[in-house]
């Protein structure tokens, strides 16, 4: 039984669960069966079943985590391909991004507070729209729980990637640039990979959204949280 805690086995299991989930989604054609979500659920089920704790899993999982950073660097390529459009529209991009950032932090805090969430949960939720490393950093700085933040960030990304284009349609956002941008602003890298599946151009503006929101959130969130009186 001890062998189940072997890190290579745990890495292999992560790949297999992800592949299985991808296959399931392809076979059934059900969008809701998001492979990231399913793989996470299956992996948690596996760990709970065999009584393996998260720390033991992370001995293998950290090698997968590791690739997040180079993958974010790699987003520089699609970003480069859209530089000329970005330059032409710099002001609208910056202003809408700033609005999205403020609206995101304020809304998540107010809704959570209204529904009676505890202080540490509210603080963990505040940076939930931005990519994990920034979000976890902010969360611990303002008194949240970084691991809860990471999990909520991933789930937010999955939701944004799945429902984002529906929300765009309902809110009548027509410009493809704005569409890509808002997905990246709300759903960081996970949303960006969903946008990338539509087209590289959506993906590029989505990565711009995740970058700008990451920067703005890192710089402004303590200030915004202070202004609305929770920090």
């Amino acid at each position: 039984m001890d062998f189940l805690t072997n890190k290579f086995l745990l890495i292999a299991a992560t790949f297999i669960f992800y592949l299985g989930s991808q296959l399931l989604q392809k076979r059934t054609g059900v969008k809701l069966l998001n492979p990231i979500l399913l793989a996470i659920a299956a992996m948690i089920g596996f760990l709970l079943l065999f009584d393996i704790d998260y720390k033991t899993y992370q001995a293998g999982g950290e090698y997968i985590d590791f690739w997040l950073k180079p993958a974010v660097v790699a987003l520089g390529l699609p970003l480069y391909k859209q530089l000329s459009t970005i330059k032409k529209q710099l002001l609208p991009l910056l202003i809408s991004e700033l609005a999205g950032c403020v609206a995101g932090i304020v809304s998540v805090v107010l809704i959570a507070k209204l529904l009676g969430a505890s202080h540490e949960v509210i603080m963990s939720l505040a940076p939930k729209a931005v990519t994990t490393p920034i979000a976890m950093e902010i969360s611990s700085a303002v008194g949240g729980i970084p691991s809860l933040t990471a999990a909520v960030v991933v789930c937010t990304g999955i939701f944004g990637g799945m429902a984002g284009f529906k929300i765009i349609k309902i809110s009548r956002i027509k410009s493809p640039i704005a569409q890509g941008l808002s997905i990246g602003t709300a759903a960081h890298a996970v949303g960006t990979s969903a946008a990338m599946e539509r087209s590289e151009r959506y993906g590029a503006f989505s990565s711009l959204g995740l970058t700008l929101n990451g920067l703005f959130t890192a710089m402004l969130s303590p200030f915004i949280l202070h202004l609305i009186g929770v920090y």
Binding site: V109, A112, A163, G164
Partner: peptide, 27 residues
Amino acid sequence: WLPIVVAAVGSTIIIIAVTGWVHRFVR
């Protein structure tokens, strides 16, 4: 779970709408 789910989902919808709308307005 309720505040966490509602806040995360609600705020995601708000971010997408606000970012898109402000972009259109400024443009």
